[in-house]
Simulated scan of single mutants.
Amino acid sequence: MSRTNLSMSISADGYVAGPHQSREQPLGIGGQALHRWHIGPDADHPVNRQIVSEMLDGMKATIMGRNMFGPIRGAWDSDWQGWWGDEPPYHCPVFVLTHHERAPIELKGGTTFFFVTDGIESAYEQATAVAEGGPISIAGGASCARQAIAAGIVDEIDLQLSAQILGSGERLFDGFEPGSPDLELVRVLHAPGVAHLRYRVNRRQSRTATPAADTRSAGS
């Protein structure tokens, strides 16, 4: 059975993206600071290299929200193919949640983007089918992650916790009842400026998010 991992960089006040996301500010105002651990001077730290490897290497399928795929809203009226150029870092099938149909986009290095219009559980079924027992990644953004947790499909959550305070933006755990999801801290690693936390998810207790908090995700 496939193991499903959710991995996100998060601020000390619980945000995974800042406010006012756009083409110029894809992570919102201040959001890029959450990713200094892997795109800044400490990217070569052995712990940070280990975490990046765990996030990408060997993944057999990835699920993401349309907001992570790009800033386009409404019908697909552009030739946008994602933020990552001709060879994205995923090297596996990627299932993008959206409300608007689009033909798959095949890029270099084994990445093909498939656009799923019937929700997170359909995306998970398709990802499971292609993964053939291999690991699946929930790549974000925040709303896609919340839907995955609420659907009870996440086995473990990796949070890269920085000391940044964003003040507003997109929270990972908005819309959940107290005590849900049911998390068990199983690993703590650290590098300069970041603590890498791994939680095991008790999937039996995870179907308690408020659906209304997540329907905007798939994206417009």
Rank of each mutant, 00 (worst) to 15 (best):
M1D: 08
M1W: 07
R3F: 08
N5I: 13
N5V: 14
N5S: 15
S7N: 11
M8E: 08
S9L: 01
S9R: 01
V16D: 04
A17N: 11
P19W: 05
Q21N: 11
S22P: 11
S22C: 10
R23L: 15
P26D: 06
G28Q: 00
G30R: 01
Q32S: 12
Q32I: 06
A33W: 08
H35F: 15
H35P: 00
R36G: 15
P41S: 08
P41L: 02
D42V: 01
D44L: 07
P46A: 08
V47T: 14
V47N: 03
R49W: 06
R49S: 05
R49Y: 03
S53I: 06
D57W: 09
G58F: 09
T62G: 07
M64T: 01
G65N: 02
N67L: 08
M68Y: 07
F69Y: 15
G70Y: 09
P71Y: 10
I72G: 05
I72Y: 08
W80L: 11
G82C: 12
W83I: 07
G85D: 13
G85A: 13
P88E: 03
P88Y: 06
P88C: 04
P89K: 10
P89Q: 07
Y90A: 04
Y90P: 03
H91K: 14
C92H: 11
F95Q: 00
L97R: 01
L97I: 04
T98M: 04
H99E: 06
H99D: 09
H100A: 02
E101K: 07
E101P: 04
E106P: 01
L107H: 04
K108S: 12
G109E: 05
T111A: 09
T112V: 13
F113N: 00
F114P: 00
F115D: 00
V116I: 15
V116E: 02
D118A: 13
D118G: 02
E121I: 07
A123Q: 03
Y124G: 00
E125V: 10
E125T: 12
G133T: 10
G134E: 02
P135I: 07
P135G: 03
S137E: 02
G141I: 04
A142V: 02
C144F: 03
V154G: 09
V154K: 09
D155Y: 12
E156Q: 15
I157W: 08
D158T: 11
D158M: 10
A163S: 14
I165Q: 11
L166H: 04
S168F: 09
S168K: 11
S168Q: 13
G169M: 09
G169V: 07
E170G: 04
F173S: 01
G175H: 07
E177F: 06
P178V: 05
P181F: 08
P181E: 07
L185K: 11
V186A: 08
A191H: 10
P192V: 00
P192Q: 02
H196L: 12
H196Y: 12
L197H: 10
Y199D: 00
R200C: 00
V201E: 01
N202S: 10
N202M: 07
R204I: 05
R204E: 15
Q205P: 00
R207F: 01
R207D: 01
A209W: 02
P211R: 08
A213E: 12
S217T: 11
A218P: 10
A218W: 13
A218R: 15
